[in-house]
Every structure is written in structure tokens, then in C-alpha cells.
């Protein structure tokens, strides 16, 4: 029985987290700063394709197809609709599609990174690049806490529904709504935080103390390939333009 082999949903995480980090930076830089002409366009296409391929590699076929679909629509809009419309319509299309396209690609890659990296792989990677406990511990706790937060939030929403506390209902305006929503969440946070701290202490967690990791991360050929692409993107953005 292999440990860690199917940590997330049954597929093996293909890339080293450090590669993903580099690619995340590279793709973001490239997508944000390029236009639509010539080599710039080619670069954007490369960036757009990478998450697609990666989604397939981790067997998230549905996500890959949805992403490809949205990309195709975007390309259509940018390539065809924009030059052929004008005035207010043009403006509206451009504003929504433009902001969207810049964010989409970077976001897609970030989503891939989140889906395919376990928190322990991430923590191990950070340790390898010598990031101190003062950053890694809060970061790990953040990831661990997000799902709990959403569960608590859901429970609170159910309770609100049951007590008839609704937006537009008779129990108070927008400000009161916010209060009803946020205060129990804050209290839950305090409580869970306390319990979590106590439990972690009994498990020997201590900031600054060295510890071992059973999670192994290593670079494969695919990692080196992507690193090359990533460095290429960055080089292009900073030097060749």
C-alpha cells in the first residue's frame, strides 16, 4: 500500500509544487502584460493551452473541456466581435471580456495547482525553499481552515433561514443582515481556533523547531520541461519585449 499516492481524488499529482509555483508566476506575468499582436498572441495561446493539458493529465476531463470551451468563446469574442462592433456595445463587450480573459488563464492555472497539490506537498515544498515556520504554519492553517469555514457558514445560513432572518425580510436591514451573518462566524472561528491550537500543541507542533516530512517531492522530466517554458515566458516578458 502506497502512502500519499492518491491523496486527492485518486490521481497522482504530476508536478513538483515548486514547478507549479514558478509556472504560476510566469503565466500570470505573461498573461497580464501581453497584447494581442504577433508574438504576444502566440505567448498567450501557449499560456492558455498549458492549464488545459494539465487538467487532462490529472484526469479532470470535464474541467478541461469547460475551460477549453470558455477559452474558445473568449477568443471568438476578442477576434471577431470586438473589431466588428462599436460604440457602447463595443465598450461593454470589451470591458467584460477583456478583464475576464486576463484573469481566466491565471485563475485556471491556480485552480489546477490547488486541485493537484496536497497541503503536505505544499508544506514540504516551502520547507525545501527555506521559507520559515512563521509563514508556513499560518499558510497551512489557512488551507486547513477554508473547508471548515464553509461548513460553519452553511450551518449558520441554515439557522438564519430557519429563524426567518432573510434579506428583505422583517428582521432588519442590510447592516443587521451582515451582523447576523458575520458574528456567529467570527465566534466559531475563535472557538475552533482555540481547540485547534490546543490539539496541535499536544501533537508537539512548535514554531521554529525542526521536523521531518514523510511526504516526498521530486522533479521529473515534465517538471524540467515546464520550468524551461516558465523561464522562457519570463525571459520573453522581461527582456525581449
Amino acid at each position: 500500500m502506497e502512502l500519499f499516492s492518491h491523496a486527492k481524488g485518486g490521481y497522482k499529482s504530476v508536478l513538483d509544487p515548486r514547478t507549479k509555483l514558478l509556472m504560476l508566476i510566469a503565466i500570470n506575468v505573461a498573461v497580464m502584460g501581453t497584447g494581442f499582436q504577433g508574438t504576444d498572441y502566440f505567448v498567450r495561446v501557449v499560456c492558455a493551452v498549458i492549464p488545459f493539458v494539465l487538467f487532462l493529465l490529472i484526469r479532470k476531463v470535464r474541467t478541461a473541456l469547460i475551460y477549453a470551451g470558455v477559452c474558445a468563446v473568449m477568443l471568438f469574442v476578442e477576434g471577431v466581435l470586438i473589431p466588428s462592433t462599436s460604440g457602447i456595445l463595443n465598450l461593454v463587450i470589451v470591458i467584460t471580456s477583456g478583464a475576464f480573459s486576463r484573469i481566466l488563464i491565471g485563475f485556471a492555472f491556480a485552480y489546477y495547482a490547488m486541485c493537484s497539490t496536497t497541503v503536505s506537498e505544499f508544506a514540504t515544498a516551502m520547507k525545501r525553499v527555506h521559507i520559515p515556520d512563521q509563514i508556513t504554519i499560518p499558510l497551512s492553517v489557512m488551507f486547513r481552515f477554508f473547508p471548515t469555514l464553509s461548513e460553519e457558514s452553511r450551518s449558520i445560513r441554515n439557522a438564519m433561514r430557519m429563524r426567518g432572518i432573510r434579506l428583505g425580510g422583517k428582521k432588519g436591514g442590510l447592516l443587521a443582515q451582515m451582523e447576523y451573518r458575520i458574528v456567529p462566524l467570527m465566534m466559531s472561528t475563535l472557538r475552533i481556533g482555540d481547540e485547534l491550537s490546543a490539539a496541535s500543541l499536544t501533537k508537539g507542533l512548535e514554531a521554529g523547531k525542526p521536523r521531518t516530512h514523510i511526504c516526498q517531492i521530486h522533479m521529473t522530466a515534465l517538471d524540467w520541461l515546464l520550468i524551461l517554458i516558465g523561464l522562457g515566458l519570463l525571459g520573453y516578458m522581461f527582456f525581449l519585449r
Partner: peptide, 22 residues
């Protein structure tokens, strides 16, 4: 005055809460 584990955990959960709220 050094940040201990409890502090770091506190930072983690509150950053998560802050981020979600935002």
C-alpha cells in the same frame, strides 16, 4: 515576545476568515 504556535495558528485562521469575507 517571539511568536508561538498559538499565535501562528491564530494568524492562519484569521487570514482565512478575512480573505473569505473579502
Amino acid at each position: 515576545n517571539k511568536l508561538n504556535t498559538k499565535d501562528l495558528i491564530s494568524i492562519g485562521i484569521f487570514t482565512a476568515l478575512y480573505f473569505v469575507v473579502i
